[in-house]
Amino acid sequence: MINFFLNEENVQIDCDPSFRLLDILRDKFQLMGPKEGCGEGECGACAVIIDGKLINSCLVAMGSLNNSKVITIEGYSKTDRYKVLERTFAEAGAVQCGFCTPGMIMAAEALLSVNANPTVEDIREAISGNLCRCTGYNMIINAIKLAAEQGVGLW
C-alpha cells in the first residue's frame, strides 16, 4: 500500500510500484490537469509539485512516493496564489492551446515559492523544462513576472 498526500488529502493506493504517478493521477484519481505530452520527462506538461519541488509526474514511479505531498493543478487552483496567476496569465496572454498550461503554472509556483521576486532570467530557467509551441514563451514569462508584482506578500 502506497501512502501519500494528494492535494493535502491523505490517500492510499495499492498498485504496482513501477506505475507512473501521472497514470495514477489521471486514471485512479481522475485528475486530468497533468497532461502527457511526451512521456519522457522532456515537455513538462505533466509537471506537479512534490514536497515543494517541480517534478514531471511521468518520471515518478509510485513506489518512490513515500508520504510525499503531491500538489496538482486541481489542488493548487483553490489557492489565492493561483488566483493571481489566473489573472496575470490572462493579462499577458500566456495561454493559447492550454495543453502546457497546468504544468507551466506548477513551474511558476515552484519558482515563486522559493523566489518571490524573480528576474526574467530566473523565470526562463524555471520554465525551461516546460515546452510551449504556441506562445514563444515571452508572454508566459511576462505573466509570471506580473504575478510576482501583483501577488506581493502571497509568496
Binding site: 509537471a47 517541480l54 514531471n56 515552484a110 516546460n130
Partner: peptide, 9 residues
Amino acid sequence: IAAPAIKNI
C-alpha cells in the same frame, strides 16, 4: 543538465 523538474529528482 536538463531543466528544474529533472534536477529536482
